Amino acid sequence: MYAVFVCVGVFAFANGYVNIALYKQAYQHNSEAGDTFNASNAVDGRKSNLSVDGGQCAVSYWGKKTATWWVNLYSIHSIHHIAIYFMTNNQPLGPSNLLTKYILGFSVYVSNTTDRLQGTLCYKDDNFTLFTMPAVFTTTCPVHGQYVIYYNERRQGVTNPDDYSKYVFTGLCEVEVYGCPATGYFGSNCSVPCPDVNCQYCHIETGTCQGCKPGYQGHRCELGKAAYVQL
């Protein structure tokens, strides 16, 4: 089960984490032409105008069966939570907002490549409806990765709920990825070194090692490769 938090204005998380997606390279499949709809709009820090023509949202072509957007964090980072500001045309989401049905069913992944299937599924929407879909969605995902990927689909032959649209597009006005700017640290302020000296990536909340430095293996990265083979 995934922890999901719907937030308006204030996050229920410690504020020591940094938005490591800000101004990073972004991409979207089937991108609309022109800077008005560019993928980078979703990581430029602007979220005051959530309309399709406001120039602050990443928008892909309409009439497609899949929608993919990702941000490249440039290196593997320890992530705590991800916040998404959806395009709403500056109106509340709900049954009267035609954009709502295009968001339903979305997924969020963290991966070390641009292939979402090689990464970790942080969240898959199978609960929201036209009445409950939030304009700002936040989910915890305490994993490590270089790419945060947004994905949605309407596959032929798959029966979706009646609330869902026939097609999908991105419509992302801001994607914020909060975590530690440097590897090897954890804690709410990213100031505590990983307890195991040879650990390269540790759980951002508990410090439990999740990945060893090159040349080391074992539960606490206490074994060099040669020693590991001899056991």
Rank of each mutant, 00 (worst) to 15 (best):
Y85H: 12
W70P: 01
K101A: 13
G54P: 07
A39N: 03
A182T: 15
R155S: 15
A83L: 08
V52T: 11
Q25N: 12
N97R: 08
S60D: 02
Y23W: 10
K47S: 14
L117V: 01
A83R: 13
Y151K: 02
V148K: 07
K47C: 04
V158Y: 11
V192S: 12
N89K: 07
E176N: 06
A3T: 15
I76Q: 15
V52G: 12
N189R: 14
Y201E: 14
E222Y: 01
G145T: 04
V192I: 15
D162T: 13
S111V: 01
N19E: 02
S111Q: 05
S40F: 06
Y178H: 13
G171I: 04
N72R: 09
S188Q: 13
G105R: 09
G94I: 10
S165P: 04
N72V: 11
G157H: 13
G34V: 00
A33W: 01
D125C: 12
G187H: 11
T100V: 06
P92L: 02
W69L: 11
G218M: 02
V197R: 09
C180E: 15
Y185N: 05
S75C: 02
G105M: 12
Q28R: 13
L223C: 09
P193C: 09
N160T: 11
V59S: 08
Q28W: 00
L98R: 13
Y185V: 14
A83S: 08
K166I: 15
K24R: 14
Y201M: 14
V175C: 07
S60F: 07
R220E: 05
N90K: 05
E174C: 06
V143T: 11
I103H: 12
R155F: 12
N41Q: 08
E205Q: 04
G218E: 07
R155N: 13
A33F: 02
